[in-house]
């Protein structure tokens, strides 16, 4: 972990933080939500070209800003998709709402929290292809999609009912599957 000369603590030249090693920036990036990461990546070239594919343990999630005036869901989904493609090695992801992304193959994803706002086949396909899932936390307001969830090998419709979903008008409580 020796960083050589760049680790010199020269008090006379403060605030030149581009010299933080990339691995430190990656550690820092793993601490905040995707939209903060996106904002930070717009600051300078060094952060913009950060290799997100090196992130292995990242809590990447979008926050509740799902209704941004003037920005279409397609625009949002497209850009999220680009980012997720770069961060395909993440172990942990919270996505709310799902936006119906064409998910990249996230073979290392072990912990997922997904809020399904609308019916998107891509969400089901994504769930069906999760190979390493250990913890899954799903919630949805869209009842028909919930009924389709029993096509996911490790989920059954009963799980969803147990989670509080009894009909289309009710918002289900999240379901947590552990040790799948």
């Amino acid at each position: 972990m020796l960083t050589g000369g760049k680790a010199e603590h020269v008090r006379a030249k403060p605030r030149v933080y581009t010299f933080l090693p990339e691995e430190l920036w990656l550690k820092i990036a793993s601490q905040f939500p995707l939209c903060d990461w996106v904002r930070a990546s717009g600051t300078c070239n060094a952060l913009h070209h950060m290799e997100l594919d090196k992130i292995e343990e990242a809590d990447i999630y979008t926050d509740s800003r799902n209704c941004i005036p003037g920005i279409s869901a397609e625009h949002l989904a497209h850009n999220l998709q680009q980012l997720l493609r770069k961060a395909e090695h993440v172990h942990c992801m919270q996505l709310s709402p799902s936006y119906g992304l064409c998910y990249p193959a996230m073979l290392h994803l072990r912990h997922l929290a997904l809020y399904l706002k609308e019916e998107y086949d891509s969400d089901l396909t994504f769930l069906q292809n999760l190979q390493e899932a250990e913890n899954l936390h799903l919630s949805s307001v869209f009842y028909p999609l919930i009924m389709k969830v029993d096509t996911v090998p490790f989920l059954t419709a009963n799980d969803w009912v147990a989670g509080g979903c009894k009909g289309p008008s009710q918002q289900p409580a999240p379901v947590c599957h552990e040790g799948l």
Binding site: P14, T18, D36, R39, A40, C44
Partner: peptide, 18 residues
């Protein structure tokens, strides 16, 4: 960094928009 604009992050960390 959380919740800050790119400009604010630049100011806070002395990053240069290049």
């Amino acid at each position: 960094i959380r919740g800050k604009s790119p400009e604010h992050v630049r100011q806070c960390f002395g990053l240069v928009k290049d």
